[in-house]
Amino acid sequence: MVRRSFGGDDHIFVEFDEEMNLAANFRAMAVTATLAERRIAGVIDICPANVSYQVRFDTDRLAPRDLVAELESIEAAVGDGTGFDLRTRIVEVPILYGDPWTRETASRFRDSRQDPDATDLEFAARVNGFDSTEGFVAAHAGSPWIASMVGFVAGLPFLFQMVPRERQLEVPKYLSPRTDTPRQTIGHGGCFGSIYSVRGAGGYQMLGITPAPIYDPTQTHPDFADSLVFFEPGFIVKYAPIDRETYDELTAQVEARRFCLRQAPVEFSLGRFLADPDGYNRGLVEALDGR
């Protein structure tokens, strides 16, 4: 299914599916990556998203019908996305689960929460059928996630866990959004995870926090020499649970501008992933160890 709509006179919006799934996400990434390579005059912004994408263009330089024809030809070439290999990277993101800062924030928004007497992590564990937060953390950190979209605010990744649907973790969002979320909070809402790049509003349950900056408008941290945004659509994330002592050590490294995220280049093939998700994921994670 492909559904196309203009967004005013200067955007075109294309949706591949109504439901979240990796195949639709991959088609969106493949089409937008190909479009970017063609460097078409008049194209302003190319935004891949979870199951859709959007192109902002200057209609004075690029006629809408010419852009549509271009997109149709790219979509036909991409097909169902299984033949497209994505050159990307895998990144290890350390998390302190159940940290004191997001717990304190949650306690300030009791009325917005389904179970004000549990922490967000305890609530997320319970609604996913785990007896303990440890079981939930093992599932959360056990398989990698793909940045299916970057946005909302600067550099914020939407993360989709690379496991079959029956193993997807799902947690309802807050009953009403918070006006405050600590920077670098690890959130989860619906089937999506996220890392809050900046402090601000948010509606996802708060599971923990990472010491690693993912957005640096000052570009003074080593990971940000080339770009003030760390994440790009298609990056793969492996979470590494850490304790408070490690969190404090890493935070000291961040403050000294010495911290770098552990990462490795990988190529991701949707076809090979779908054939054996767990085996394929093991291979991806091994790339982090240089194997």
Partner: peptide
């Protein structure tokens, strides 16, 4: 799947 339960919810889009 992934949209949220309110009729005004969609899978996050641009």
């Amino acid at each position: 799947f992934g949209a949220g339960s309110d009729p005004s919810n969609i899978v996050d889009a641009p």
